[in-house]
Simulated assay, not measured.
Amino acid sequence: MNGAQQAAHAEHVPDEVMVELESCATQDAHAVFSALRTTFSSDREADDVPEEMAGPGATVWTSTFDVSDRKAAAEPRRLSAPVVVSLQGGYWAVDELCRGLESAFAVHVLGTAAGDQEKEVELRLETR
């Protein structure tokens, strides 16, 4: 791609990644989201702590992160158990968010699904 094509391509690539956590402890969800908020802008406030919802079924936590303006790297965080995380967004944005997670956790890719302009990645995060 030449410079003009790269610039046009960059304008069409979404910089937001939707992050979904399911079936994990509340404190682990908080650890993951707080690490991501250290590195990227979020649709959630810094003091927004995940809460367990009463009732049948698994609790699912979601948040959206803008990876276009990377902030400080997150310090390593402890998890009580491995956490499975689903990421969905543009190719570059998902890859950038994965790199952001690596400063705080051991990251293992469980699977990927690729679309025309977006991809979904499932990760397992563990304490480093």
Rank of each mutant, 00 (worst) to 15 (best):
H30E: 14
L123Q: 02
Q27M: 10
Q27S: 12
F33A: 10
P76E: 02
L87V: 03
V83L: 06
F65E: 00
H9W: 14
D47H: 14
L101H: 01
K71G: 05
V32W: 02
T112F: 08
V67P: 07
H12P: 05
W92C: 09
E52K: 12
G100E: 01
L36M: 10
N2Q: 01
V67S: 10
Y91F: 15
R77G: 09
V32T: 03
V60G: 05
A8C: 07
E122S: 14
G111I: 11
D15G: 14
V60S: 08
W61M: 04
F65W: 00
G57N: 05
P56C: 10
L101C: 02
P56W: 11
V107Q: 05
A10V: 11
S41Q: 10
A73G: 05
F40H: 04
D15E: 12
S80Q: 10
A25D: 04
E20Y: 06
R44T: 13
T127D: 00
A114Q: 10
K119P: 01
S86C: 10
Q5Y: 04
D43E: 03
P50V: 09
V60A: 07
G111H: 05
D95N: 11
G89I: 08
E118H: 14
V84Y: 02
A58P: 12
F65I: 03
K119W: 04
E22L: 07
G100F: 06
Y91T: 07
R124K: 08
E16W: 12
Q117Y: 12
L125C: 00
E75P: 08
C98M: 15
A25C: 07
P82Y: 01
T112I: 06
K71E: 09
Q6E: 14
K71T: 03
Y91Q: 09
E96K: 07
F105K: 01
A93G: 01
D116R: 13
R44E: 13
E45M: 07
L110V: 01
V84N: 07
S34Y: 07
